[in-house]
């Protein structure tokens, strides 16, 4: 569990990103930081990873870099590398303890094996992302940060990735960012909704939909932003 309390952050350009941000992540389930573009989702990741210091407030515990994996949206990878080469690169870059959980074996057999001989350049966007995320999940850490892991993917690929992250969340702390509330439907997930420089909601998906009396997640997203604007 990571507790963020009274956190404020302003860039040197005077653009305030957060003022009095409070939220708590949960263990055993996925944590999703949701918000519209430019709300500072990547900035909060940088702070959770200890790369950026907030002007005020606390994050506890602040883990050491050796305890963290931080995935970016795009990954610079050798286009001529095969799936097996990619896995080897990650293993060589971090030759320490590797995860051998059952869910990883399953995803390996169901989705990764058929990519082993395929070149990275020939893989679809979804396959590339799944392969990289799988490779990152095999590295043993306490906290995994995934920045928009499903951005630009079709629903099938996105769901595969979220299922993998959901399995990973049963044994480590997993936080990811997203714009798409609809992806979280039927996912065991703790939603942290950020707008107007603070957290406007935290809880599960069903609670969020109930709060805004909506069935449509896109409309719930819009309502949440609207209501918050009218309050502030």
């Amino acid at each position: 569990m990571i507790k963020v309390e009274h956190l404020s952050f302003t860039y040197a350009s005077k653009k305030a990103i957060y003022s009095d941000l409070n939220f708590t992540t949960v263990d055993g389930r996925l944590n999703c930081i949701i918000g519209k573009n430019g709300v500072g989702k990547s900035t909060i990741f940088d702070m959770l990873a200890g790369l950026v210091k907030p002007q005020s407030g606390t994050i506890s515990p602040l883990l050491a870099s050796s305890e963290i994996i931080y995935q970016m949206q795009g990954v610079p990878m050798l286009m001529t590398a095969t799936g097996q080469n990619v896995l080897d690169i990650f293993r060589d870059l971090n030759p320490g303890a590797q995860r051998t959980d059952d869910f990883l074996t399953t995803i390996y057999q169901e989705n990764v094996v058929n990519l082993l001989d395929e070149k990275f350049r020939d893989m679809s966007g979804g396959e590339r992302r799944l392969l990289i995320i799988y490779a990152m999940c095999t590295l043993k850490r306490s906290l995994y940060l995934f920045d928009e892991p499903t951005s630009g993917l079709d629903p099938v690929s996105a769901r595969k990735i979220l299922n993998l992250l959901s399995d990973l969340a049963t044994c480590s702390q997993v936080i990811f960012t997203s714009h798409n509330l609809f992806e979280l439907k039927n996912m065991p997930c703790h939603v942290i909704f950020i707008a107007n420089r603070r957290c406007i909601f935290q809880g599960n998906y069903e609670d969020l939909m109930q709060r805004y009396a909506e069935d449509d997640p896109v409309q719930a997203f819009v309502d949440a932003l609207k209501q918050d604007q009218s309050v502030s």
């Binding site: 940088d46 990873a49 790369l51 870099s65 050796s66 963290i68 994996i69 931080y70 995935q71 970016m72 795009g74 990954v75 610079p76 990650f90 870059l93 971090n94 990152m136 590295l139």
Partner: peptide, 16 residues
């Protein structure tokens, strides 16, 4: 360039 693209931080957490 890798730093500006944001990739340096990803590799940093992998190689520590």
């Amino acid at each position: 360039g890798r730093r500006e693209d944001g990739f340096l931080k990803m590799y940093y957490f992998i190689v520590e």
